[in-house]
């Protein structure tokens, strides 16, 4: 498959009041078209920074990033983004919050309103489309923010710890829903998490990152068959992948055994 995102020797240094902070150093990786790719690592290792650089929101200091062959200068077309916090706007209903993606892009909302409704229906929010964000639970809000990211059919979906603030059960639900829609649409997903099990369950490949300065230490392929039911997490193959990654992190002194 063709490379969708190519990163070559990318480095990122933030200027701050206490001097320069090296957030990323010499990161190289390729993400294939249609691949589910995870960035896994402890907090502060530069996962969000790398995602922001791929999205074109932050420029890199050294090296290069190409998205579908184009060198980045600002956000490329066809990106969808989901953050850890849902960033729903309190003054808009759930449906209006989903539609804002089209409004931002200057597309008439009439073109996408049916799709917005269908997406909400699919994520179990059909009955809540005219409610306001504060009337919904955390899991429902995050579902709405995923609908918002998917509205204009992005070719690349960037997700920064989207389920990090949710309880374990809601998180399981959303993991299943996410794999289901990914399976159906086969878009490229770059997914940030600090949960090894989540990364293994969702991904085709997992890039393990380490801090000081932020870099990729290893890229692990997850060859578990798809579709993956939740129960796959109890299989020995799954446990082997998790143990392998945990072992690598431990050997590098990134996590304690």
């Amino acid at each position: 498959m063709a490379a969708c995102v190519e990163i070559r020797a990318a480095g990122k240094t933030y200027g701050s009041a206490r001097g320069p902070v090296i957030a990323l150093s010499d990161v190289s990786m390729d993400v294939a078209e249609g691949e589910f790719f995870s960035l896994l690592g402890p907090s502060g290792c530069g996962k969000s920074t790398l995602l922001k650089c791929i999205s074109g929101l932050e420029g890199i200091s050294t090296g290069g990033i190409r998205v579908r062959g184009q060198a980045l200068s600002g956000p490329p077309k066809g990106l969808g983004m989901v953050f850890q916090r849902d960033v729903l706007l309190d003054w808009r209903t759930i449906l209006q919050n989903v539609l804002i993606t089209a409004e931002f892009q200057g597309r008439p909302t009439a073109e996408v309103i049916d799709r917005a409704r269908a997406l909400l229906e699919r994520f179990g929010l059909g009955a809540f489309q005219d409610r306001h964000p504060w009337e919904l639970s955390g899991g429902m809000r995050q579902r709405a923010s995923i609908c918002r990211a998917l509205l204009c059919e992005p070719e690349i979906l960037l997700m920064d710890e989207p389920f990090g603030a949710l309880d374990a059960m809601t998180r399981d639900d959303l993991n299943v829903e996410l794999t289901r829609i990914w399976q159906a649409a086969r878009r490229t997903v770059i997914f940030v998490t600090h949960s090894i099990a989540e990364a293994v369950y969702l991904s085709d490949r997992v890039a393990m990152m380490s801090a000081g300065p932020g870099r990729i230490v290893e890229i692990v392929a997850i060859d578990l068959p798809r579709p993956r039911p939740l129960s796959i997490r109890e299989t020995p193959e799954f446990a082997r992948h998790v143990a392998h990654i945990r072992g690598l992190f431990a050997a590098l002194g990134i996590v304690k055994e």
Binding site: L89, F104, Q105
Partner: peptide, 12 residues
């Protein structure tokens, strides 16, 4: 800032 980021990603 994430709301602004979202808008910028969508070229608002």
């Amino acid at each position: 800032p994430d709301a602004i980021a979202l808008a910028r990603v969508n070229h608002a």
